[in-house]
Write a protein that binds this DNA or RNA. Structure first.
Lengths: 261, 261
DNA sequence: CCAAAAGTGTTGATAGTACACCCATGA
DNA sequence: TCATGGGTGTACTATCAACACTTTTGG
């Protein structure tokens, strides 16, 4: 940490010399519902920004890493009993002095990805969460909101949400991250809908299929299994997430602008 | 920040209820010297890890963002009078309890990139740094170290340095970041050496040249200017960094393994 | 039989690689 | 004139996008 570089050397060992920093985590929890990207939001019950929607989050406790705190909050907010398999990714840290009007808050932001039909979650499952959430104020609501109608959010959460979207979109290109949006067994059509929802573009189905299958370790076939997706049509073969984490070759999104010449 | 989600609601407004977190920044300052990637290290003068090398860094002050603190530290450590144009990029935050044996430290890591012939920097230029660095202990040394012989470092800095290298290597592919390693006017050969040093691979010169020039906004020619690079050979045309920040199309590094079939 | 969704084949354009080759300069 | 580094041309090949076509299911 470059401890020795601190110019105000005398204050290094006085833990209470400065007004302390609060360290929190903020979560952009994303999923697909009916083919559209959704984000988990909570309604604030207190000032500032009372009544507005915000990303879920909370304090990092003294014995936790930011990652541990984020996973704990994820379990509390979604009510899922097992969040250990879910993808959780650190985005960046937001530390501007005035982010929160009450005190100095440094927030580590995470993106979390949930499989397609997320169980209609229960907020603050008593079996998991601490005894009594929040003191006197109104109970905060939580709900899934379509990504496009999420804004405006409280604090600097518009920016955090945009950063989460951008990061996830970029990682779909060169990692197998898309499978984190899918249930354990999924069809290639479902996988394609993940790409289309996050990127906001339509993809050519035959070419998508070929690219996915040509990428070693991306998906592996479940022998003999098949499932009807839309009630009609040919049943689709099922696949599981493969061992690869990086895609070689990458699955690049169509470029917005034409190339020169 | 999801303030309302905190389960221990009563403690939200008691700033001193917990032992406070210290928030620091750590810097992986990278440059090219004689065609090889180097990193700026400081020698620790105090326990823990006294006598070992570490990444430079320091505390975030109450009125600073992590970015501001990182830029201040960068100026202090390099002795450069103007660091405003240098590339500074947040990597991620390291928050495991126990990173530092003395107290709870949450560290925001940054990568900084300096142009090729970095002025032989002076540590702690009095005109810039705070009056008297560090209390009683030995003065810490600082020096440029080849990337490959930098380890082992103190704390978890080996990992931070590896993360910095990986991030920079990836960003060379799809951003114009490589120009941040170059002086204001540079030759395509110099630019190519940036890629080769960071990626650790040789590139085909004619093809590299074509790709760079075919990417709109990557570089722009300085009309009529030329410079001898190695004392011998044809003088090379000079270029400046272009307006583009993202490369379209990207400049992909050669894949390690062959493709199937 | 029709609609809908899955899956296969083909083809023309493009981009990338691996070279061979020429140019300008210092010693 | 040779060594060194800059700059250009070219041909082979792998890749990719676009779209026609076949298959299998429910109504």
């Amino acid at each position: 940490m470059g401890w020795v570089q601190v110019s105000d050397g005398e204050q290094v060992y006085d833990k209470y010399a400065y007004e302390p920093f609060a360290v929190t985590v903020d979560l952009a929890v994303l999923t697909l519902r009916a083919g559209a990207l959704h984000v988990l939001l909570v309604e604030r019950g207190q000032e500032p920004y009372a009544g507005q929607w915000a990303l879920p989050g909370g304090f990092v406790r003294p014995d936790e890493s930011a990652e541990t705190a984020a996973r704990r909050e994820l379990a509390e907010e979604t009510g899922l009993s097992d969040v250990s398999g879910l993808h959780l990714e650190q985005l960046r840290t937001y530390s501007e002095p005035g982010r929160d009007p009450r005190m100095r808050v440094v927030s580590v932001a995470f993106a979390a990805l949930l499989p397609d039909p997320p169980p209609d979650f229960v907020r603050g499952d008593p079996a998991l969460a601490s005894p009594e959430p929040r003191g006197g104020s109104d109970a905060a609501q939580a709900r899934w909101t379509p990504y496009d109608s999420a804004r405006p959010l409280a604090f600097d959460h518009d920016r955090i949400l945009a950063d989460a979207h951008e990061r996830v979109g970029a990682k779909l290109e060169y990692t197998s991250l898309a499978t984190a949006f899918c249930p354990p067994e999924f069809t290639l059509g479902e996988l394609q809908r993940v790409y289309e929802a996050v990127w906001g573009t339509a993809l050519d189905r035959p070419n998508f299929r070929r690219k996915v299958l040509a990428t070693p370790g991306f998906v592996e076939a479940v022998p003999g299994a098949a499932r009807l997706t839309g009630g009609r049509g040919k049943p689709a073969a099922l696949y599981r997430a493969g061992a690869a984490t990086a895609l070689q070759p990458p699955l690049l999104r169509p470029s917005r602008e034409g190339r020169p010449t």
